[in-house]
Design a protein around this nucleic acid. Structure first.
Lengths: 137, 137
DNA sequence: TATTGTTATACTCTATAACTATA
DNA sequence: TATAGTTATAGAGTATAACAATA
Protein backbone atom coordinates (compact mmCIF):
# COMPACT_ATOMS: atom_id res chain seq x y z
CA UNK A 1 0.00 0.00 0.00
CA UNK A 2 1.35 3.44 -0.92
CA UNK A 3 0.35 5.09 2.33
CA UNK A 4 2.32 2.56 4.40
CA UNK A 5 5.43 3.27 2.35
CA UNK A 6 4.93 6.98 3.03
CA UNK A 7 4.45 6.41 6.76
CA UNK A 8 7.67 4.40 6.82
CA UNK A 9 9.51 7.09 4.90
CA UNK A 10 8.23 9.84 7.21
CA UNK A 11 9.12 7.92 10.37
CA UNK A 12 12.56 6.99 9.12
CA UNK A 13 13.26 10.53 7.95
CA UNK A 14 12.10 11.83 11.31
CA UNK A 15 14.51 9.63 13.24
CA UNK A 16 17.32 10.42 10.84
CA UNK A 17 16.95 14.20 11.02
CA UNK A 18 16.33 14.00 14.77
CA UNK A 19 19.61 12.11 15.04
CA UNK A 20 21.43 14.88 13.22
CA UNK A 21 19.85 17.51 15.45
CA UNK A 22 20.61 15.50 18.59
CA UNK A 23 24.24 15.10 17.63
CA UNK A 24 24.70 18.78 16.80
CA UNK A 25 22.99 19.79 20.03
CA UNK A 26 25.05 17.35 22.10
CA UNK A 27 28.26 18.91 20.78
CA UNK A 28 27.16 22.06 22.62
CA UNK A 29 25.44 20.38 25.58
CA UNK A 30 21.99 21.11 24.23
CA UNK A 31 19.22 18.54 24.34
CA UNK A 32 16.90 18.23 21.37
CA UNK A 33 14.29 20.14 23.34
CA UNK A 34 16.70 22.97 24.17
CA UNK A 35 17.79 23.09 20.54
CA UNK A 36 14.20 23.47 19.48
CA UNK A 37 13.52 26.09 22.13
CA UNK A 38 16.49 28.12 20.92
CA UNK A 39 15.10 27.91 17.38
CA UNK A 40 11.71 29.14 18.50
CA UNK A 41 13.13 31.97 20.57
CA UNK A 42 15.13 33.28 17.61
CA UNK A 43 12.10 35.19 16.43
CA UNK A 44 9.69 35.17 19.36
CA UNK A 45 9.44 36.34 22.97
CA UNK A 46 6.73 34.08 24.38
CA UNK A 47 5.49 33.73 27.90
CA UNK A 48 6.36 30.52 29.75
CA UNK A 49 2.98 28.90 29.16
CA UNK A 50 3.02 29.67 25.44
CA UNK A 51 6.45 28.16 25.01
CA UNK A 52 5.47 25.09 27.02
CA UNK A 53 2.43 24.51 24.80
CA UNK A 54 4.52 25.04 21.69
CA UNK A 55 7.05 22.45 22.84
CA UNK A 56 4.38 20.09 24.12
CA UNK A 57 5.74 20.20 27.67
CA UNK A 58 4.23 20.71 31.08
CA UNK A 59 4.84 24.18 32.48
CA UNK A 60 6.87 22.70 35.34
CA UNK A 61 9.15 20.95 32.85
CA UNK A 62 9.68 24.23 31.08
CA UNK A 63 10.58 25.98 34.35
CA UNK A 64 13.50 23.59 34.80
CA UNK A 65 14.53 23.80 31.16
CA UNK A 66 14.60 27.59 31.25
CA UNK A 67 16.37 27.55 34.63
CA UNK A 68 19.24 25.57 33.16
CA UNK A 69 19.45 27.68 30.01
CA UNK A 70 19.33 30.83 32.14
CA UNK A 71 22.18 29.64 34.36
CA UNK A 72 24.22 29.14 31.20
CA UNK A 73 23.43 32.70 30.14
CA UNK A 74 21.51 31.65 27.01
CA UNK A 75 18.07 33.01 27.90
CA UNK A 76 16.58 35.51 30.30
CA UNK A 77 13.24 35.96 32.01
CA UNK A 78 11.36 39.23 31.88
CA UNK A 79 8.40 40.28 33.97
CA UNK A 80 5.38 41.50 32.08
CA UNK A 81 4.20 44.84 33.50
CA UNK A 82 0.60 44.42 32.26
CA UNK A 83 0.11 41.16 34.16
CA UNK A 84 2.64 40.57 36.87
CA UNK A 85 1.95 36.85 36.98
CA UNK A 86 3.39 36.45 33.49
CA UNK A 87 7.03 35.68 32.70
CA UNK A 88 8.36 36.36 29.21
CA UNK A 89 11.37 34.42 27.90
CA UNK A 90 13.90 35.64 25.37
CA UNK A 91 17.40 34.92 24.11
CA UNK A 92 20.39 36.78 25.49
CA UNK A 93 23.01 37.93 22.96
CA UNK A 94 25.00 34.80 23.82
CA UNK A 95 21.90 32.70 23.24
CA UNK A 96 21.28 34.39 19.90
CA UNK A 97 24.83 33.72 18.83
CA UNK A 98 24.63 30.07 19.86
CA UNK A 99 21.28 29.65 18.11
CA UNK A 100 22.70 31.01 14.86
CA UNK A 101 25.79 28.82 15.16
CA UNK A 102 23.75 25.72 15.81
CA UNK A 103 21.28 26.29 13.01
CA UNK A 104 24.13 27.11 10.65
CA UNK A 105 25.61 23.77 11.56
CA UNK A 106 22.26 22.09 10.94
CA UNK A 107 22.20 23.60 7.46
CA UNK A 108 25.72 22.35 6.79
CA UNK A 109 24.91 18.89 8.13
CA UNK A 110 21.84 18.58 5.90
CA UNK A 111 23.53 20.07 2.85
CA UNK A 112 24.77 16.72 1.48
CA UNK A 113 21.24 15.34 1.61
CA UNK A 114 19.81 18.44 -0.01
CA UNK A 115 22.44 18.49 -2.70
CA UNK A 116 21.36 15.06 -3.83
CA UNK A 117 18.24 16.73 -5.20
CA UNK A 118 18.19 19.12 -8.11
CA UNK A 119 16.56 22.52 -7.49
CA UNK A 120 13.24 21.47 -8.96
CA UNK A 121 13.04 18.42 -6.70
CA UNK A 122 13.93 20.54 -3.67
CA UNK A 123 11.00 22.80 -4.41
CA UNK A 124 8.77 19.79 -4.90
CA UNK A 125 9.85 18.31 -1.57
CA UNK A 126 9.24 21.57 0.27
CA UNK A 127 5.78 21.85 -1.25
CA UNK A 128 4.86 18.23 -0.57
CA UNK A 129 5.98 18.38 3.07
CA UNK A 130 4.08 21.58 3.52
CA UNK A 131 0.95 20.26 1.87
CA UNK A 132 0.96 17.08 3.93
CA UNK A 133 2.09 18.24 7.35
CA UNK A 134 1.80 21.97 7.74
CA UNK A 135 -1.87 22.32 6.95
CA UNK A 136 -4.74 22.70 9.42
CA UNK A 137 -5.92 19.42 10.96
CA UNK B 1 17.66 30.37 -0.94
CA UNK B 2 15.88 27.13 -1.80
CA UNK B 3 18.05 24.94 0.38
CA UNK B 4 17.22 26.98 3.50
CA UNK B 5 13.52 26.53 2.83
CA UNK B 6 14.11 22.80 2.55
CA UNK B 7 16.12 22.69 5.78
CA UNK B 8 13.29 24.52 7.55
CA UNK B 9 10.70 22.15 6.10
CA UNK B 10 12.70 19.08 7.13
CA UNK B 11 13.28 20.37 10.65
CA UNK B 12 9.67 21.37 11.14
CA UNK B 13 8.40 18.07 9.74
CA UNK B 14 10.79 16.23 12.02
CA UNK B 15 9.49 17.95 15.14
CA UNK B 16 5.92 17.50 14.01
CA UNK B 17 6.18 13.76 13.33
CA UNK B 18 8.30 13.30 16.45
CA UNK B 19 5.51 14.98 18.40
CA UNK B 20 2.98 12.50 17.02
CA UNK B 21 5.25 9.57 17.88
CA UNK B 22 5.95 10.95 21.35
CA UNK B 23 2.25 11.35 22.07
CA UNK B 24 1.37 7.86 20.85
CA UNK B 25 4.24 6.37 22.84
CA UNK B 26 3.31 8.30 25.97
CA UNK B 27 -0.22 6.84 25.85
CA UNK B 28 1.44 3.46 26.49
CA UNK B 29 4.31 4.67 28.70
CA UNK B 30 6.85 4.36 25.92
CA UNK B 31 9.50 6.98 25.33
CA UNK B 32 10.39 7.94 21.77
CA UNK B 33 13.51 5.80 22.10
CA UNK B 34 11.58 2.77 23.32
CA UNK B 35 9.05 3.24 20.52
CA UNK B 36 11.87 3.23 18.02
CA UNK B 37 13.51 0.21 19.62
CA UNK B 38 10.23 -1.71 19.40
CA UNK B 39 10.01 -0.80 15.73
CA UNK B 40 13.52 -2.06 15.08
CA UNK B 41 12.99 -5.29 17.00
CA UNK B 42 9.90 -6.12 14.97
CA UNK B 43 12.08 -7.67 12.30
CA UNK B 44 15.51 -8.06 13.92
CA UNK B 45 17.19 -9.85 16.83
CA UNK B 46 20.33 -7.74 17.36
CA UNK B 47 22.94 -7.98 20.04
CA UNK B 48 23.05 -5.19 22.62
CA UNK B 49 25.91 -3.33 20.97
CA UNK B 50 24.30 -3.44 17.53
CA UNK B 51 21.05 -2.03 18.87
CA UNK B 52 22.89 0.67 20.81
CA UNK B 53 24.74 1.77 17.67
CA UNK B 54 21.52 1.71 15.67
CA UNK B 55 19.79 3.94 18.22
CA UNK B 56 22.84 6.17 18.66
CA UNK B 57 23.08 5.37 22.38
CA UNK B 58 25.86 4.32 24.68
CA UNK B 59 25.79 0.61 25.56
CA UNK B 60 25.22 1.49 29.23
CA UNK B 61 22.16 3.54 28.29
CA UNK B 62 20.80 0.61 26.34
CA UNK B 63 21.31 -1.73 29.31
CA UNK B 64 18.94 0.42 31.35
CA UNK B 65 16.46 0.81 28.51
CA UNK B 66 16.29 -2.94 27.93
CA UNK B 67 16.12 -3.58 31.68
CA UNK B 68 12.98 -1.51 31.92
CA UNK B 69 11.38 -3.04 28.83
CA UNK B 70 12.27 -6.52 30.10
CA UNK B 71 10.66 -5.85 33.48
CA UNK B 72 7.50 -4.92 31.61
CA UNK B 73 7.65 -8.18 29.68
CA UNK B 74 8.11 -6.50 26.29
CA UNK B 75 11.55 -7.84 25.39
CA UNK B 76 13.82 -10.66 26.49
CA UNK B 77 17.55 -11.25 26.52
CA UNK B 78 19.09 -14.38 25.03
CA UNK B 79 22.63 -15.64 25.44
CA UNK B 80 24.51 -16.37 22.26
CA UNK B 81 26.08 -19.84 22.42
CA UNK B 82 28.81 -19.02 19.88
CA UNK B 83 30.19 -16.15 21.96
CA UNK B 84 29.06 -16.18 25.54
CA UNK B 85 29.84 -12.50 26.04
CA UNK B 86 27.08 -11.54 23.61
CA UNK B 87 23.49 -10.80 24.59
CA UNK B 88 20.79 -10.92 21.91
CA UNK B 89 17.58 -8.91 22.36
CA UNK B 90 14.19 -9.78 20.94
CA UNK B 91 10.50 -8.99 21.41
CA UNK B 92 8.29 -11.20 23.53
CA UNK B 93 4.82 -12.01 22.16
CA UNK B 94 3.48 -9.16 24.32
CA UNK B 95 6.13 -6.85 22.88
CA UNK B 96 5.24 -7.89 19.35
CA UNK B 97 1.59 -7.20 20.00
CA UNK B 98 2.33 -3.79 21.50
CA UNK B 99 4.65 -2.90 18.62
CA UNK B 100 1.97 -3.74 16.06
CA UNK B 101 -0.64 -1.78 18.02
CA UNK B 102 1.59 1.24 18.31
CA UNK B 103 2.65 1.32 14.70
CA UNK B 104 -0.94 0.79 13.63
CA UNK B 105 -1.79 3.86 15.65
CA UNK B 106 1.04 5.78 14.02
CA UNK B 107 -0.40 4.92 10.61
CA UNK B 108 -3.84 6.10 11.71
CA UNK B 109 -2.43 9.31 13.19
CA UNK B 110 -0.56 10.17 10.01
CA UNK B 111 -3.42 9.17 7.70
CA UNK B 112 -4.98 12.67 7.60
CA UNK B 113 -1.67 14.15 6.50
CA UNK B 114 -1.15 11.46 3.91
CA UNK B 115 -4.66 11.78 2.58
CA UNK B 116 -4.02 15.41 1.77
CA UNK B 117 -1.83 14.15 -1.05
CA UNK B 118 -3.08 12.34 -4.11
CA UNK B 119 -1.47 8.95 -4.85
CA UNK B 120 0.97 10.39 -7.34
CA UNK B 121 2.20 12.99 -4.86
CA UNK B 122 2.57 10.32 -2.17
CA UNK B 123 4.85 8.35 -4.45
CA UNK B 124 6.79 11.50 -5.27
CA UNK B 125 7.24 12.30 -1.59
CA UNK B 126 8.45 8.79 -0.79
CA UNK B 127 10.93 8.93 -3.62
CA UNK B 128 12.22 12.39 -2.74
CA UNK B 129 12.69 11.54 0.94
CA UNK B 130 14.47 8.38 -0.03
CA UNK B 131 16.69 10.11 -2.57
CA UNK B 132 17.65 12.84 -0.14
CA UNK B 133 17.99 11.04 3.17
CA UNK B 134 18.24 7.31 2.70
CA UNK B 135 21.21 7.26 0.40
CA UNK B 136 24.82 6.52 1.31
CA UNK B 137 26.68 9.45 2.79
C1' DT C 1 44.90 -7.75 25.92
C1' DA C 2 40.56 -6.72 23.68
C1' DT C 3 35.58 -7.07 23.55
C1' DT C 4 30.74 -7.47 25.47
C1' DG C 5 27.86 -6.14 28.60
C1' DT C 6 26.54 -4.42 33.39
C1' DT C 7 26.89 -1.38 37.41
C1' DA C 8 27.79 3.00 39.91
C1' DT C 9 27.31 7.70 39.57
C1' DA C 10 25.67 12.14 38.22
C1' DC C 11 22.89 15.07 35.61
C1' DT C 12 19.03 16.20 32.45
C1' DC C 13 14.24 15.55 31.04
C1' DT C 14 9.66 14.76 32.20
C1' DA C 15 5.00 14.76 34.65
C1' DT C 16 2.06 15.20 38.92
C1' DA C 17 0.89 17.50 42.93
C1' DA C 18 1.27 21.21 46.01
C1' DC C 19 2.40 25.79 46.47
C1' DT C 20 2.86 31.30 45.86
C1' DA C 21 1.58 35.41 43.76
C1' DT C 22 -1.47 37.87 41.01
C1' DA C 23 -5.78 38.65 38.70
C1' DT D 1 -11.95 31.55 42.29
C1' DA D 2 -8.98 31.18 38.37
C1' DT D 3 -4.53 31.74 36.15
C1' DA D 4 0.79 31.99 35.70
C1' DG D 5 4.59 30.18 37.26
C1' DT D 6 7.73 27.67 40.66
C1' DT D 7 9.06 23.98 43.75
C1' DA D 8 9.13 19.21 45.58
C1' DT D 9 9.24 14.73 44.27
C1' DA D 10 9.87 10.61 41.63
C1' DG D 11 11.09 8.09 37.70
C1' DA D 12 13.09 7.66 32.94
C1' DG D 13 16.85 8.81 29.75
C1' DT D 14 21.57 9.76 29.05
C1' DA D 15 26.89 9.49 29.24
C1' DT D 16 31.37 8.46 31.65
C1' DA D 17 34.09 5.52 34.28
C1' DA D 18 34.94 1.32 36.53
C1' DC D 19 34.03 -3.36 36.54
C1' DA D 20 33.23 -8.73 35.43
C1' DA D 21 33.14 -12.30 32.15
C1' DT D 22 34.64 -14.09 28.00
C1' DA D 23 37.49 -14.26 23.92
Amino acid sequence: MTSDALVDALVRSTFQVAGVLTRIGAERDLSLTQLRALGILRDRRPRMTELAVFLGLDKSTLSGLIDRAEHRGLVARGRNPQDRRVVDVFLTPAGQELAEQVYGEVRRALAPAINRLDPQDRDRLVRLLHAALHSPG
